[in-house]
Write a protein that binds this DNA or RNA. Structure first.
Lengths: 355, 355
DNA sequence: CTGAAAGCGCTTACAG
DNA sequence: CTGAAAGCGCTTACAG
């Protein structure tokens, strides 16, 4: 059995395809009565226009692409599923679809974007985890293709984004530590090509400056966004002669590693050394002890991103869609007052791995 | 500047569009020399066929859809990102794309599948988390549309799937407990419309039977796939007069809840009560104590699913692609011998929540 | 081995 | 208000 197409529908109505098409698309120059007649016949015959043909004729894809971020620790990618859900929801209200793209490196990613955009297979793009200088953003910007960014790059004046105020979040975290009498606050930074890593580091430095605490580069380590990197960076800081009394991590994943580093040195998180992460991963509720963190509002970021993109595709001005949300302090169990006097000595021991 | 299309390329070569098209598609009846000449010109002019036009002409979408599973606890969805990565990788080797679909209920999901398949927008479907009786599978089966399933439904004889031997995994887990002298082994089951929940429960029952331990329905609770549900189910079992000495959970997420239930009762996991989860979530490494679990090999399940689907779309027989992998026992810290004599008394205390 | 033509299923100026 | 025609950019029998 053949799916009913425009031709069949038109013949059945004794109208031309053009008239039927215009009726279905609510052209005002078609009489109300025929519009109604056509609509009813279409429903009765189960007609739905072929999107491929429509796409070819109009040049509009009605599809949006999401660029999957590079693989990191695996764990930090827990935001992807809810994000896709959210984007998908806002698109589906219009009958649009969501395409997912992924590549091993930035070059391939741009090639993929070029292919998808120039072939008109997509109408817009959602990007995650931008770099400070992001060639993907540059590409989309220069080609003048509709896009929104989940996060921000350095120059974010002229495009649409949805971001959390990373700087404010880290200033907030440092101030909470200072209020608890911490003075030697270590920072485990992220790779600085990521804008969020840069912003969080700036928030850290700012808060110190505002409270008259000298910035000590010996207390700052840059590490990859993995547990292992977090662990070894934390280890290096903790093994100094004058170790920090508190550790601020750029991501929860790093903080998990830091937790391990503390455990190996028999240091009690929240007593001997305070620890604050960032992300608000659900995991943190179950760590030993539960991880204090700055949580981002990821509930409906996906929905918002989708809505913003649709508005832009409809002709909206990208700069009208720049939203800065704020992170919430989630006080679990790894934050406490700075310990008085000298810290107890460090002794590392080996721990059995998994079997 | 206009993207070069077939017409421009043909004119430039003084050939007809048909000839150029056939040359590019390696038709053997085009002379080798012109095939080469055309290929070179296409490269030089940066020609790439418009997929939409191609799709309309051939009826082949060169796109595969992945159906996002319903939202659960959020945490159990950590398998989605690597899965999408894997599927995307195998598709991209052929230049195909990956579409993502999601809906609030099964009915909408089928409507979406019907729309995508009948409009020829996709060439195949990947499905996750099938139900025992899965109407989506029935739909794809009866319409004879290419698909692969990540998991299995009850009647899985006639389609392609990639699954883990859930039954064997739970038999294995129970036997490990029995070897450690556990006799009262509790099961926190999952909703039984999920095939994997059913299979795991069967593995549990089988192992008991094989070792001459009577099945005690008072030790079995069915719970949703969330932490909360896991916690309350575990609580009910632990609060019985004759509580189990070990708890087997259908998912790690449930096991996290069970861990909370134990903590609230001052029971030490792995000493007072043993606990085994299922999934191998990375989270489990950081729980207090680290969670013993059966880990599924999710490394390249995505890749395999993609490859299988492509093979089927190419005309392969679905039943040739049925892969049963096995789960790995990951011994962390919540498994120990059954405690001797009477268990210490339970005393619940309230715990402060997050702020 | 290549050309000429029809067709995939829509949309949209242009007439009348 | 509706019809007739061209066009979107490909592919593929059918001739020759």
């Amino acid at each position: 059995m053949q799916r009913t197409n425009l031709k069949m529908l038109a013949e059945h109505l004794s109208l031309t395809q053009g008239t039927v098409s215009r009726a279905l698309n609510e052209y005002p120059d078609i009489s109300k009565s025929t519009r109604k007649r056509v609509r009813e016949a279409a429903n009765a015959m189960g007609y739905a226009p072929n999107p491929t043909a429509r796409r070819l004729a109009t040049g509009v894809a009605e599809v949006v692409a999401y660029v999957l971020p590079e693989r990191h620790s695996g764990m930090s990618e827990s935001f992807i599923a809810p994000l896709l859900q959210g984007i998908g929801e806002s698109l589906s209200e219009r009958g649009w679809d969501l395409l997912v793209t992924q590549a091993r490196n930035t070059e391939d990613e741009i090639a993929a974007l070029r292919r998808l955009t120039t072939s008109r297979q997509i109408s817009g793009v959602v990007l995650s985890r931008p770099h400070k200088k992001d060639p993907r953003i540059d590409f989309l910007r220069t080609t003048n293709f509709p896009f929104v960014v989940h996060g921000r790059s350095d120059d974010c004046d002229d495009y649409a984004w949805y971001d959390v105020d990373n700087k404010a979040a880290f200033t907030d975290a440092v101030e909470r530590l200072i209020k608890l009498r911490h003075r030697r606050i270590g920072l485990i930074g992220g790779p600085l090509h990521f804008s969020f890593a840069q912003m969080r580091a700036e928030g850290y430095a700012d808060a110190l400056a505002q409270h008259g605490i000298a910035f000590d580069s010996a207390l700052v380590k840059t590490a990859a966004l993995s547990e292992e990197a977090g662990e070894s960076a934390a280890g290096e800081l903790l093994d100094r002669k004058h170790p920090p009394t508190a550790l601020l991590c750029t991501t929860d994943t790093q903080a998990l590693g830091a937790l391990t580093a503390l455990r190996r040195r028999d240091l009690i998180p929240g007593e001997d050394v305070s620890l604050i992460g960032y992300d608000g991963l659900a995991i943190g509720r179950h760590t030993n002890p539960p991880l204090t963190t700055m949580a981002q509002p990821q509930a409906d970021s996906g929905r918002r991103l989708g809505e913003m993109l649709l508005a832009i595709i409809d002709g909206g001005t990208p700069t009208d869609f720049q939203e800065l949300h704020s992170a919430d302090f989630l006080n679990r169990k790894t934050l406490g007052p700075a310990p008085e006097g000298k810290r107890k000595t460090t002794n590392k021991d080996t721990e059995k791995g998994e079997d």
